[in-house]
Write a protein that binds this DNA or RNA. Structure first.
Length: 863
RNA sequence: GCCCGGGUGGCGGAAUUGGCAGACGCAACGGACUUAAAAUCCGUUGACCGUAAGGUCGUGGGGGUUCGAGUCCCCCCCCGGGUACCA
């Protein structure tokens, strides 16, 4: 028993402190406080059946360290956790086993909570939320009502992924290459009335407000691309011999003089009307073939252009030439107007099409010969229609006798002039298009938020009132889809029936449910006031806590989750429910943690359980062939998933936390290597022995002995480095500095107590259990969690002397110890008078001396 | 194809933003302690030449700017992620 007194025993102290923090409600945030607030948020997990893997806690560890640090800096910190618990897996499991998703979800959440607590994260558990709790989704439904009131929710006929063999609608991610993920049955597109949210109405603001966010540039760029704004014009083409008008969208109105044909999407409403009798059979065949193209065919990379002429012509508005009208599936109904003017000389897709079908290619932009040769073509090629030119150049052949002449103009000016001319003549107008589509908000599923909507038998779409919320899910025993594309909710016959209390009118409840995104669109707001039964949140609290100061999560949510949440937030802002335009001020994406995998010489992946190691090389257990080790995504099939429970059991949570951060920069993709955990554990052991003696109390070598200047220097530098590195989340280098500190101080026979206490405080946010334990054993009876963060004195860093480098012509020659804080002149004098330096320089003419004080001196001599 | 990241020892990574490349750790090797092992501690470890002092090369490749380049500029190659005919 006595032997264990002085030992570092994470398995004992970690549960002890976790219990202490929880019992004493150490990390509960105060609503309103004199202290400045700091809201640090993790993307909440979907509690899956397989539990956490080592990737999950990566971001959570970083935010926990920051949260703990901020508390010690005197901030009132909001650091909550919850569960994004609606979703497909629990429902699939219910279909297979009959277990209610509620039960599966509860079990998984309990497991996740226990695992997350075992890391010692400092969440405010009094604010835990769960998107499947009626007390939560009541407000998700309430937000839907607000969206609807604002005219942002509407029903539309939209194609869904319908799998006739399974009798169900599938989510996009359940469809692989046009077949169902389970069973490999064909999937077709089938139109169905569904709820849509008008996110497009917010496209411009979602785009513009990105500029003010402190997010990774890459993520902002992905959102910009997703929104996909393009500026151009809509131009009307009159169809020869009819009154029909084809409207096209183009970003290049300046190339109108080069338009030699038009293309309609096969589904374009005018296609049927305009097709001539001679062409009808071929056109119908093409349309039929196009409509039967699977998703696989549509995304096919080869993209050999296909299309047919429909036997009609349109007038080019700038020159009245008659140009043929084609249909082709390279033009999509879903973007712009579903019709284009084709300028083969200056658009690569049109060029490909025109070349294949022998349509005229008319160049109206002449590249400079330099620009052309950069692309290894000549301007003659372009002018002759042998090459396509999409970049800048000199406008030619671009004038008419009705007042339009853009010859010689730069592109931007040519565009503006053309648009003005079109507008004056009544042929067009400047226009903006977005790639962003409205958000399909219905799912034909059970395990999601029900819509607060009744389809009245008289055709009215009735929205329930706030008082009717929540609309809870009916109890079911069979979770199979109701067939014909209907949600399993359609099976709950009684639940579906609705009688309006006031009038006795009857209707049926909406049987669709909301997508998983819904609950995660606003959870960060509910944490602010999680138990409020009369409002989603109290405005004063919202004003106090928002915005989220730091949001950390995986890059897989770069577009959808973050865009949807921003959209809802802006709507709530417009309605006056929130006080900020944007929810997440700063965003960081943690990088993926890879596992170890093996491949043979053919590149085939070998599961880890079939690999054996011999003499540092890897072999296949059965075939004996030589295998190569490499990092790869963790997956069940490769059996290379690292389970954090095992790591914690063997090394403890503090070692786990440190290793997660020590691996490398938070945002980088990094391979997991369990022997690295060993390294940080050794560091913790050394730190423990530096402070705790063999009897388990504070080490006898610690006293009020004074620090040497060198030790003082190291202490202050360490405070500075660790402080800065935690602020910027460069925790790997903070740990490395603490290692340097321990390496130095553990060598000493006598150690200064204040320095040791400062070390424990610096370690506190990173390895909180061991730090609390050491703090207590040093004689303190209150938690370390709110101790004041140590400050450093810049004057005490580098106080003594430092080594600088003397270079000659940039080559390192002599290292010299110089007094600290010399000016450039003094340094130069000091260096040039040094005998070693004079020997090196002897016989050569000094042309110039470059002096960087405190770093180096470079002597430039004549060559 | 396009848009983002990224390429530094055997491995993970560091480098104050243009100033000693390889901090810190892993692995490996050598030594101390031990009957032995584990643990711990000490040392070595970019490559090449040299007994040594020392020298040469070296941050994916090639060129450039600079007293000085992992860092800045131009061209090219490779890897990872996103996206897909968006007119």
């Amino acid at each position: 028993m006595n032997e264990s007194k002085g030992r570092y025993q994470p398995e004992v102290i970690e549960p002890k402190w976790q219990k202490f923090w929880l019992d004493n409600r150490v990390f509960e945030a105060d609503d309103f406080s004199e202290k400045p607030k700091f809201y640090v948020l993790d993307m909440f997990p979907y509690p899956s059946g397989s539990g956490l893997h080592v990737g999950h806690p990566e971001g959570y560890t970083a935010t926990d360290m920051l949260a703990r640090y901020k508390r010690m800096r005197g901030y009132n910190v909001l650091h909550p956790m919850g569960w994004d618990a609606f979703g497909l897996p629990a429902e699939q499991y219910a279909i297979e086993t009959g277990t209610h998703p509620k039960e599966t979800t509860k079990k998984n959440i309990d497991r996740f909570r226990e695992q997350i607590r075992s890391f010692g994260f400092s969440y405010d558990w009094s604010r835990e939320i769960n998107t499947t709790d009626p007390g939560y989704y009541r407000w998700t439904q309430w937000i839907f009502l607000q969206l609807h009131k604002k005219g942002l929710a509407y029903l539309d006929e939209v194609p869904v992924n319908w799998c006739p063999a399974l009798g169900t609608v599938l989510a996009n991610e359940e469809v692989i290459d046009g077949r169902s993920e389970r069973g490999g049955h064909p999937v077709v597109r089938k139109p169905m009335k569904q709820w849509m949210l008008k996110i497009t109405e917010y496209a411009e603001r979602l785009l513009a407000d990105l500029d003010e966010l402190d997010w990774p540039e890459g993520i902002k760029e992905m959102q910009r691309n997703w929104i996909g704004k393009s500026v151009g014009a809509e131009v009307d083409f009159k169809v020869v011999g009819t009154t029909a008008i084809i409207r096209v969208f183009t970003t290049r109105p300046d190339t109108l003089f080069g338009a030699t044909y038009m293309v309609l999407a096969p589904e374009h409403p005018l296609t049927g009307k305009l097709t001539s009798d001679e062409c009808r059979r071929e056109v119908d065949e093409y349309i039929f073939a196009a409509s039967n193209k699977s998703d696989l065919d549509r995304t096919e990379l080869s993209t050999e252009k296909t299309g047919v002429f429909i036997g009609a012509y349109a007038f080019n508005p700038v020159n009245n030439e008659e140009i043929p009208i084609w249909i082709s599936d390279y033009v999509m109904m879903g973007y712009g107007t579903g019709a284009i003017m084709a300028v083969p000389a200056h658009d690569s897709r049109d060029f490909e099409f025109a070349t294949k079908f022998g349509i005229e290619i008319r160049a109206i932009i002449e590249p400079s010969s330099d620009a052309a040769s950069d692309e290894s073509i000549t301007s003659e090629d372009v002018l002759a229609g042998r090459a396509c030119w999409t970049r800048n150049g000199r406008m030619i052949r671009s004038s008419n006798d009705r007042g339009l002449d853009i010859n010689g103009m730069p592109i931007e000016e040519a565009k503006a002039v053309t648009i003005d001319w079109l507008a004056n003549e009544g042929f067009g107008i400047s226009a903006i298009n977005y790639k962003l589509r409205d958000w399909l908000f219905s799912r034909q599923r059970y395990w999601g938020e029900p819509f607060p909507v009744i389809h009245m038998d008289d055709g009215e779409i009735k929205l329930l009132s706030d008082d009717d919320l929540p609309v809870t899910l009916p109890e079911l025993t069979d979770f199979h889809p109701a067939g014909n594309g209907q949600s399993p909710l359609a099976n709950a016959v009684e639940w579906c029936e609705y009688v309006e209390p006031e009038s006795g009118r009857v209707g049926r409840r909406e049987t669709h449910t909301m997508p998983q995104w819904a609950g995660s669109c606003w959870y960060y707001l509910r944490y602010i006031d999680p138990n409020n039964a009369s409002a989603p949140w109290e405005p004063a609290k919202e004003e106090y806590w928002m915005p989220v100061d730091l949001y950390v999560g995986g890059a897989e949510h770069a577009v959808l989750h973050l865009l949807y949440a921003r959209f809802w937030h802006k709507v709530l802002y417009d309605l006056g429910y929130v006080s900020t335009k944007e929810p997440f001020k700063k965003l960081i994406n943690q990088g993926m943690i890879l596992g170890t995998s093996y491949k043979n010489s053919d590149g085939a992946l070998i599961p880890t359980n079939l690999v054996t190691q011999k003499d540092g090389k890897f072999h296949h257990v059965e075939t004996g062939e030589h295998l190569e080790e490499f990092p790869a995504k963790m997956s069940k099939s490769l059996r290379n998933v690292v389970n954090p429970d095992n790591i914690i059991a063997e090394y403890g949570a503090d070692s786990f936390r440190l290793y997660e951060m020590f691996m490398g920069p938070l945002e980088a993709v990094k391979p997991w290597n369990t022997s690295g955990v060993e390294g940080v554990r050794r560091f913790l052991l050394r730190a423990w022995r530096m402070i705790i003696g063999s009897e388990g109390a504070i080490s006898a070598s610690i006293s009020d002995i004074s620090l040497t200047r060198k030790q003082e220097d190291l202490l202050h530098f360490t405070i500075k480095k660790v402080t800065g590195d935690i602020e910027s989340l460069d925790i790997n280098t903070a740990i490395s500095q603490l290692m340097i500190f321990v390496n130095e101080f553990s060598k000493l026979e006598a150690r200064n107590k204040v320095a040791m206490e400062i070390f424990v405080k610096l370690l506190g946010p990173l390895a909180p259990h061991i730090a609390e334990e050491m703090w207590q054993r040093m004689g303190h009876d209150s938690t370390l969690a709110y101790e004041a963060w140590p400050s450093y004195d810049e004057e005490r860093i580098g106080i003594e002397e430092l080594e600088i480098l003397v270079q000659i012509l940039g080559k390192p020659k002599v290292r010299l110890v110089v007094p600290a804080r010399l000016s450039a002149d003094e340094t130069e004098k000091f260096v040039l008078s040094n005998s070693e330096v004079t020997r090196e320089v002897a016989g050569r003419t000094i042309k110039k001396v470059i002096c960087v004080p405190g770093r180096l001196v470079n002597i430039v001599v004549a060559r």
